[in-house]
């Protein structure tokens, strides 16, 4: 949903109508709501406009449609401004430029070889040092799995990725890449983008989604690669599983690959969000049975299935029906909300 500010000027005809029937205003509001907009606030003003209305609508096209419909009545002249809420605008101002283009060489033969040699030093060394011990359960669930998959994990620590990489069997680990938040890991001031792409198996994902975000991961899936993605988006501060974004389900459905859930426990004590230096402790990684989304038609249903598979691994009760977050990502709105990755 986007916010828009609409300035309205009445035409002479509109003025006449309003005078004859002041309730006309409410009828127009109701009509806009029927067309998919939500009126948040509305004021009558003195000055160059007669009314100022703050509305919420799905996207620019929807607003244009509504505008055409309403100004077609000949009673008003509209001027519409797409608006950004102030706190979000401040975030945008502070955001640094970042790289969004993946390093395409990262799937080449030599990159895979170098990554494999470097793994001991970049990944395994740290896992052995801080996860005392790392217990991996459920490897047998992947016995029959072949080809690409979407690997999803709960996310509460920067150590999650090394643990997931360590938990996966070599035949998946050798051909897997990890969706990482572009603004964090690929910010322009960081100089070692290539290092992440090579040794940490990451590729940049722009937070907030968009159809374009799916291009690279979809091409990976088509080539038999797997993708690790954290469906909660960012790291959880509380350690509880947050609502899933729609991106992973969309990718799995479009790429016709299964989803492998991994639940990680203990890393919150080892290295929670905001802590730089890990404290060694026991860590568990529980691999679930691959979830097939074949035959599932709606993104919200698929997302709910993934959420419940993860909750089951965590020993939590499933969410009832398709809860609000999943429902909000209904098919029509899905492309705009895709993505959802980010380490």
């Amino acid at each position: 949903m986007g916010t828009y500010v609409v300035f309205t000027k009445l035409t002479p005809q509109g003025r006449k109508n309003l005078h004859a029937d002041p309730d006309r205003l409410r009828v127009v509001t109701q009509q806009a709501e029927k067309l998919g907009a939500k009126v948040v606030q509305q004021y009558a003003t003195i000055g160059q406009y007669d009314f100022v209305t703050v509305i919420e609508a799905p996207d620019n096209a929807a607003v244009q449609g509504i505008g055409a419909e309403i100004s077609g009545l000949g009673t008003v002249k509209l001027t519409t401004f797409p608006a950004i809420k102030m706190d979000r605008f401040e975030q945008l101002l502070k955001m640094e430029p970042y790289r969004t283009e993946p390093h395409h060489w990262q799937t080449s033969f030599w990159a895979r070889a170098v990554r494999r040699i470097g793994r001991q030093w970049v990944i395994t060394r740290h896992v052995n040092k801080y996860c005392k011990p790392l217990t991996v359960e459920g490897r047998e669930n992947l016995k029959d799995h072949k080809g690409g998959a979407i690997v999803i994990a709960n996310h509460s620590s920067h150590m999650d990725s090394p643990v997931v990489l360590s938990a996966l069997p070599e035949r998946i680990r050798g051909k897997v890449l990890l969706a990482a938040a572009a603004d964090k890991f690929y910010a322009s001031r960081r100089k070692r983008h290539w290092f992440y792409s090579l040794f940490h198996s990451t590729f940049p994902v722009h937070r907030g989604g968009g159809v374009k975000q799916l291009e690279y991961p979809m091409s990976l899936l088509r080539r038999g690669w797997s993708i690790i993605i954290y469906p909660e988006g960012g790291r959880s501060k509380t350690g509880q599983i947050q609502r899933f974004k729609a991106g992973p389900a969309i990718m799995a459905m479009q790429g016709k690959v299964p989803v492998i859930p991994i639940y990680i426990e203990g890393l919150r004590e080892v290295m929670p969000k905001g802590q730089r230096e890990p404290r060694p402790g026991p860590v568990f990684a529980r691999i679930g049975r691959p979830v097939s989304l074949e035959g599932v038609t709606s993104v919200s249903e698929a997302t709910a299935m993934l959420e419940n598979a993860m909750r089951e691994l965590a020993g939590l009760p499933p969410h009832r029906a398709s809860a609000p977050a999943a429902a909000a990502a209904a098919p029509a709105a899905a492309p705009a909300q895709a993505g959802g990755g980010g380490a």
Partner: peptide, 9 residues
């Protein structure tokens, strides 16, 4: 700045 006095609808 441009300021418009406003009244809730």
């Amino acid at each position: 700045l441009t300021t418009l006095p406003a009244l809730p609808v």
